[in-house]
Design a protein around this nucleic acid. Structure first.
Lengths: 228, 228
DNA sequence: CAAAACTAATAGTATTACTATCACTATTTC
DNA sequence: GAAATAGTGATAGTAATACTATTAGTTTTG
């Protein structure tokens, strides 16, 4: 497994950048340090000028890679979903039992993120924090429909479809596979947010992962094929 | 019922405004027209200057009611949750069976909003659109924790607690009442968003409400007390 | 009737989100 | 080996935003 996936590159819609940031050291720096900077100051206070200062480069140089900071956010969120999709594929590859496969999928989506050594310039933990705290700003805009037409959300939607297929493989009779898939994916993110900031409305438990909640959910909602 | 609730006022944390907008015609106009304007142009493009022009008043006058547009957003989202809480209370008042009560609660949270004649200056349908498309911007900021301490999210959290109590009333043994409550509340909003913008990942059905999905969910997750 | 409260209008500031231009350096190409 | 080209850095400039401050007129109230 390791060898096959060793030199993977997560490919993101080319419309999202002017010049591929993966193609140069400066580009990789823009991504790597930009993620840390957004994690630190928040997306609102993040500017290309500040990022330029951070990497000893210039605002104008960053503008040669990305049109604006909104496209930048779309780029890194797409990268994140592409990365998650890769993990999902790898982790469920050898599992034949549909229910076990789904449980593994839930684990991949819900467990806290750990560093991936294959992508040295990207801090996945910081990126995951951005997904938790900022990512919905990438689609909550008046331009969603237009950007959706341009395929700016395909990776995310493909991931939802994959999970929904896993759900239907367990129970083809279940009526809401897509809704349940988004509940698992977006619900995981939201539960992490609530754990971090609104702990008074959480179901206290030691492990810092909502995986148990979603596992219990699918176990009770889905009838395995022979049961229905 | 009607008489008792006729002259209700939704009360919002006084820290969120400098001067109570409910106390003057100008204030009510700021709320009423502001909601329409945000619905129309989106929160990013919304400014007090534009709102001033819209209501034939002045930017500086609006600043006497609200410190900034972020507090304004918090004000109207709190109003919305207060309004929802009121509906929840009223609609479930006479129901004794815990499960029927919970189902009614789900209906209140998930069904599309209709106009409430008691609040003439507020267009609840437009406000609901704002909740769907903009509201998470009210808490996805670097200041969440600080604002949370000041009670800027109490109404929302109280609503989550109420639904979670309804869940526990049905099945005291269920382990994740809070998570399920946020899944119902925030999941409803998110499903509306997905229906509006990402229809390829929805479970196509005629009724434009995710209520059926959540009803099916609680029916299968919760064991009624006599069953466990 | 006078004082206080409220609103409108204007001006001004720092920051943001860019665009444009130019200079320098490294690399490629003929 | 000279010339063209691409990539980067630095600076300046612009329109819009998110305010603050001041003043002046209008309405309310004690």
């Amino acid at each position: 497994m390791d060898q096959v996936f060793k030199n993977v590159k997560i490919s993101v819609n080319t419309e999202l950048y002017l010049k591929d940031p993966e193609s140069t050291p400066l580009g990789k720096n823009i991504i790597g340090q930009g993620i840390l900077l957004i994690d630190k100051v928040g997306f609102e206070k993040f500017t290309f000028k500040k990022l330029g200062a951070e990497i000893n480069s210039n605002e104008s140089s960053i503008y040669r890679y990305f049109e604006n900071k909104h496209k930048y956010l779309l780029y890194i969120t797409n990268w994140f979903w592409g990365w998650k999709e890769l993990q999902l594929t790898m982790m469920t590859l050898g599992i034949n039992d549909p229910f076990k496969k789904l449980l593994k999928g839930i684990e991949v989506m819900a467990h806290p993120v750990v560093e991936d050594m294959r992508f040295k310039h990207i801090n996945e933990v910081a990126l995951n924090n951005i997904i938790i705290n900022e990512s919905s700003k990438s689609y909550l805009t008046k331009k969603v429909d237009e950007e959706n037409k341009h395929g700016h959300f395909v990776i995310y939607k493909r991931l939802v479809s994959r999970i929904s297929e896993m759900i239907s493989a367990v129970d083809p009779g279940y009526e809401y596979p897509f809704s349940l898939a988004t509940t698992i994916i977006d619900g995981s993110i939201h539960q992490h947010f609530i754990n971090q900031h609104f702990s008074s409305i959480t179901d206290q438990r030691a492990e810092n992962s909502p995986a148990g909640y979603f596992e219990n959910m699918v176990s009770n909602l889905l009838k395995k094929t022979n049961e229905r």
